[in-house]
């Protein structure tokens, strides 16, 4: 077994967030949902897209970091996976975009 895979601990051991912090994260997610619905009601035109997607990004980061324990992850490869996937997707969308907006 190589070094980066050693010192593994099953996730269920209480080295991650506490029960209370899970509930706190849930509360934050609900508040953010309420916020994004409220913001959408204001008719902010184009800013609404940025605000709504920004809030969605914050919400999913909370889920990734706390519910999915990415914040407590010690393996580099797993930490990098989501940025790699998002990056690949950004490139796919970006280069397609370069065609669609200039056509």
């Amino acid at each position: 077994m190589n070094a980066d895979a050693s010192r593994e601990m099953p996730d269920a051991r209480p080295h991650g967030p506490t029960t209370r912090s899970y509930v706190a994260v849930w509360g934050a997610l609900i508040v953010l949902t309420a916020t994004t619905v409220a913001v959408a009601g204001f008719n902010l035109q184009k800013i609404a897209i940025i605000v709504c997607l920004g809030i969605a990004a914050v919400k999913s980061t909370l889920v990734l970091f706390y519910f999915m324990h990415l914040r407590y992850e010690h393996r580099l490869i797993i930490k990098l996976l989501i940025p790699i996937a998002i990056g690949a997707l950004a490139i796919f969308i970006g280069l397609t975009f370069s065609d669609v907006i200039t056509r």
């Binding site: 280069l95 370069s98 065609d99 669609v100 200039t102 056509r103």
Partner: peptide, 11 residues
Amino acid sequence: SGQSDTAGIIF
């Protein structure tokens, strides 16, 4: 295919 010239140059 009808892709834009800009995209063609980039690719």
